[in-house]
C-alpha cells in the first residue's frame, strides 16, 4: 500500500458552501453528543460534596477540588487486600498477555502470509470467520475447558487465552501481505536465513505499525477487564474490578466513583494518542476482499 497521504486533500472539485456548512453542523452535533458525557465525568470528579448534591444540579464544576481523588486513595488504603496487589495483577496480566499475543500471533501471521503450505488458507479463513461472533457465546464452555486444564482461579486463565486473538492475527497477516515484499523474503532465504530468522530479523521490523496496533488492542482489552468469571480469589482480581468495587459503595462515594472512572480511562486514551498514526496505518490494510 502506498504511504498514507498526510497533506490536505487537494480539492479540484467545487465544494458547495451549503455542503460544507451541513457537514460541519452534523459533525458538531455528533461531536457534542460524544464529548459531553466525558466532560461531565471529568467535571463530576472535581466537584466538592455540596456541588455533587445540589439542586438544581450544575453540569460544570464551580469550585474544583481534588478531594474526590484523595478520598479514592484513602479508600484504597482500607481495602483488605493491599491495593498494590490489584495494580500488580492488572499490570502483570496486561504485559504478559500482550507480549505473548504479539509473539504467538505475529509468528502465525508470518507463516500464513509468506509461506504457501497446505491448510494455511483454511486456517486463516477459520480465524477470520471467528471475527463474526462475540466471545460471550463461548463463555460457559470455555469455563469447562479451563476447569479441565486446572486453569480456573490462576493467572493462566486470564493470560493464556489472550495469546491468540483473532483480530490480532487478522490485522497482522493483512499488514504483512501488503508491507513485506516477497523479493525481500526470498533474497533473505537465498542468503541462507531460516524461516524463523527471516520472520524475526526481516519481517518484524517492517511491520512496526501492525505490532503497535496489536499491542494497543491487546493491552486495552486486558487493562479494561473487570471481574472475570474465571477468578474467585480476591488476591488475583484486577485493578479495574477493585476500583469500581470501592467506588460503587453507595451514593456517598459518587465523587470517588467519578475520580475512579477518570483514572481508568486516562491510560488507554493516552496510549491511543501516542500511537494513533500507527494504528490508522495498520487499518489501511484491514480490508476484506472476499
Amino acid at each position: 500500500m502506498a504511504k498514507l497521504r498526510t497533506r490536505r486533500h487537494k480539492v479540484i472539485l467545487s465544494r458547495s458552501a451549503g455542503g460544507d456548512a451541513g457537514i460541519t453542523f452534523m459533525l458538531v452535533i455528533l461531536g457534542i453528543f460524544m464529548i459531553l458525557p466525558m466532560v461531565y465525568a471529568i467535571s463530576q470528579s472535581f466537584k466538592p460534596l455540596d456541588e455533587l448534591w445540589m439542586f438544581p444540579p450544575r453540569f460544570f464544576v464551580k469550585s474544583p477540588t481534588l478531594s474526590n481523588y484523595s478520598d479514592l486513595f484513602k479508600l484504597m488504603d482500607i481495602s483488605w487486600v493491599p491495593f498494590s496487589r490489584y495494580i500488580f495483577n492488572t499490570v502483570f496480566v496486561s504485559i504478559a498477555g500482550t507480549a505473548g499475543n504479539l509473539f504467538v500471533s505475529s509468528l502465525a501471521a508470518y507463516a500464513m502470509a509468506k509461506i504457501k503450505f497446505p491448510g494455511g488458507r483454511v486456517m486463516f479463513k477459520t480465524v477470520r470467520t471467528s471475527l463474526m461472533f462475540h466471545s460471550t457465546v463461548t463463555a460457559i464452555t470455555n469455563f469447562i475447558i479451563m476447569k479441565t486444564f486446572h486453569m480456573i482461579d490462576t493467572y493462566f486463565a486470564l493470560i493464556v487465552p489472550a495469546f491468540c486473538t483473532s483480530l490480532g492475527l487478522y490485522l497482522m497477516k493483512q499488514f504483512m501481505d501488503t508491507n513485506v515484499p516477497h523479493d525481500i523474503v526470498e533474497s533473505a532465504h537465498l542468503d541462507g536465513a531460516s524461516e524463523f530468522k527471516t520472520f524475526w530479523v526481516i519481517a518484524m521490523p517492517m511491520v512496526k505499525p501492525a505490532w503497535l496496533t496489536l499491542i494497543i488492542y491487546s493491552f486495552q482489552g486486558l487493562w479494561n477487564a473487570g471481574a472475570s468469571v474465571y477468578i474467585h480469589s480476591e488476591q488475583l482480581k484486577s485493578f479495574n474490578y477493585a476500583i469500581r468495587q470501592i467506588a460503587a459503595g453507595g451514593i456517598k462515594r459518587a465523587g470517588a466513583n467519578a475520580a475512579a472512572m477518570v483514572i481508568m480511562m486516562l491510560v488507554p486514551i493516552s496510549v491511543f494518542v501516542i500511537t494513533q498514526s500507527n494504528i490508522i496505518e495498520t487499518m489501511g490494510s484491514s480490508g476484506m476482499k472476499d
Binding site: 458525557p37 479495574n240 481508568m264
Partner: peptide
Amino acid sequence: LVFYAPSISGEI
C-alpha cells in the same frame, strides 16, 4: 480521538 475515546475507556 473525541469520537473514538468512549469505545476504549472501559466502563466510562
